[in-house]
Amino acid sequence: MTAAVQDEALAIAALRQRPRRDHEASFFFWDPAFGCASVKILPGEFYVHDQDVAITTTLGSCVAACLHDRTAGIGGMNHFMLPDAGDASAGGRFGAFAMELLINELLKRGARRNALEAKVFGGGQVMKSLAGTLIGEKNVSFVQQFLASERIPLVGSDVLEVFPRKVCMFPRSGRVLCRRLPAAQVGQTEAQEAQYRAQLGRQRGGDVELFR
């Protein structure tokens, strides 16, 4: 094993050894594009850190909110599917619960509520089966209203329109990259969201843009 590979393995192991909270992301990998350890957020999950690991997710009609305290050097991201509050059994798949999960964890880790800034992504109309439901628009409207009510300034966004997105956040610096994915990947994103929506139903009975 080379020194570089050993360092990568140690970085991933360190992330896996951290105590994990309910709904916290747990899929860790080494991202060669950024040269750092990464964590992938699935629908209903969140992640907070104070080091520049890469927090990543892929969005269709779902929304991800990235919150950051630049003075404390800590940030995090969530990924929710529906704006309704839902109940605890559905966890972070609902917007209100997802936002509370993220904010509470940031405060526990040393962020200050009055210092938080937000960047928001997703809400695209990519699922033909949901074209008449305006789920993406409702998700975006919810998070915008939530941030306004909590007096958290929205300093960057890439939302709505008709394509899926890949989002990558570096939580220490607050830097976020958003890539609009090509049409060829719409089907993959649609299938992923459909899978998670089915799970939720059972429980209830391009170009890279940098935002600073």
Rank of each mutant, 00 (worst) to 15 (best):
A183G: 07
A33G: 04
A14I: 02
E137C: 05
G201M: 10
P164A: 15
R175I: 09
R172G: 01
G206S: 12
L59H: 07
R179K: 13
P32S: 11
L15N: 03
R16L: 15
F211E: 03
S129P: 00
H23N: 14
G187N: 15
C66V: 14
F163G: 02
A194N: 12
I41W: 07
R20T: 09
G136M: 00
F34M: 01
P164V: 05
F97P: 09
E24A: 11
G122H: 01
K108T: 11
L116T: 01
A131I: 08
A194H: 10
D69E: 06
A96I: 02
G174I: 03
T58F: 13
G132E: 04
R212I: 04
Y196K: 05
A148T: 14
V63Q: 01
R16Y: 07
L82Q: 03
S26H: 14
E193D: 11
Q195N: 12
G206A: 13
N139Q: 01
G95W: 03
F28N: 07
D52K: 05
I135G: 00
A88D: 08
F121C: 03
F170D: 12
I12T: 02
L147V: 02
P164Q: 12
R112Q: 11
S61A: 10
D22F: 03
S157F: 10
L102F: 09
K40F: 13
